[in-house]
Computed example of a mutant assay.
Amino acid sequence: MAQQFLFGQEHVDKYRETDGQEGHDWQGTTVLLLTTTGRKSGRSITTPLIYQKHGDDYVVVASKGGAPDSPHWYHNLVADPQVEVQVLGDRFAANARTAGPDEKPELWRLMTATWPQYDEYQTKTDRPIPVVVLERTGS
């Protein structure tokens, strides 16, 4: 049975159990797992997110479907940019940063090419939706 929803612990569990064989490919796009440290709880929190490669980096979007506030995972990585990423069977530490104004337009086009709904989400909210760059740290 195909994975219906991106969000949820079931998606995370299947992805981890199968090194992304289940859960990486989703509705015509690709998904990674991002693990942040909860800024209030201090717990590790893993979220499946649509991504694209950009050079050696990975790019994700903090859209929350166009909600007025950014998703919790984004607030967590702003508070602590040291994150863990899993792409298929590759797990690595990364530094997360919000794309700056010079690079965001190119990265936004990259992400809307893979998930056109991001443009729709942006029309639903007054906040600029952040684009996040995940830079591998170490090997």
Score class of each variant (00 low, 15 high):
Arg97Met: 11
Asn76Phe: 12
Gln86Asp: 07
Pro48Thr: 03
Lys53Phe: 11
Val59Thr: 00
Ser63Thr: 13
Ser63Asn: 00
Leu6His: 06
Arg39His: 04
Thr35His: 10
Glu17Gln: 14
Glu135Phe: 04
Glu106Lys: 09
Tyr74Trp: 13
Val31Ser: 01
Asp119Arg: 12
Thr47Arg: 05
Ser44Glu: 15
Val12Trp: 11
Met1Tyr: 12
Thr36Ser: 10
Lys64Glu: 12
Asn76Leu: 02
Trp73Asp: 05
Glu120Ile: 12
Gly8Asp: 08
Gly38Met: 06
Pro48Gln: 02
Lys64Pro: 06
Ala93Asp: 13
Gly65Arg: 09
Trp108Tyr: 09
Glu17Arg: 15
Tyr121Ser: 11
Ala93His: 05
Gly20His: 00
Val60Cys: 07
Asp13Gln: 13
Ala79Asp: 13
Gln82Ala: 15
Thr114Gly: 02
Asp19Asn: 15
Gly8Pro: 01
Gly138Gln: 07
Leu134Lys: 04
Arg97Tyr: 13
Ala113Phe: 00
Thr47Glu: 01
Ala79Phe: 11
Pro48Gly: 06
Leu110Glu: 00
Leu49Gln: 12
Gln86Cys: 04
Pro128Lys: 14
Glu22His: 10
Glu17Cys: 07
Ile45Glu: 09
Gln3Phe: 01
Asp57Asn: 15
Met1Pro: 11
Thr98Phe: 02
Val61Met: 11
Gln4Trp: 09
Thr112Glu: 03
Leu32Asp: 03
Leu49His: 10
Trp108Thr: 02
Thr47Gln: 03
Met1Val: 13
Ala94Ser: 08
Gly42Thr: 10
Leu88Ile: 02
Glu106Arg: 14
Gly66Leu: 05
Thr29Val: 06
Leu33Glu: 03
Gln82Cys: 07
Phe7Lys: 13
Thr36Ala: 03
Asp19Trp: 04
Ala62Asn: 01
Pro71Phe: 08
Thr46Lys: 10
Gln86Glu: 11
Gly38Glu: 01
Gln122Ile: 03
Thr18Ile: 12
Gly20Ser: 09
Ala94Gln: 04
Asp69Ile: 13
Asn76Cys: 09
Pro105His: 10
Ala62His: 00
Lys40Trp: 01
Met1Trp: 04
Ala113Ile: 03
Val87Pro: 06
Thr35Ile: 07
Thr37Tyr: 05
Gln21Arg: 15
Val59Gln: 00
Leu34Cys: 03
Gly89Leu: 03
Trp115Pro: 08
Thr112Tyr: 09
Ser41Ala: 03
Leu77Asn: 02
Asp57Tyr: 06
Arg109Ser: 15
His75Lys: 15
Thr112Gly: 00
Glu106Cys: 00
Lys124Pro: 07
Pro101Asp: 13
Thr36Val: 07
Trp73Glu: 01
Glu106Met: 11
Ser44Thr: 13
Asp126Tyr: 00
Asp126Gly: 14
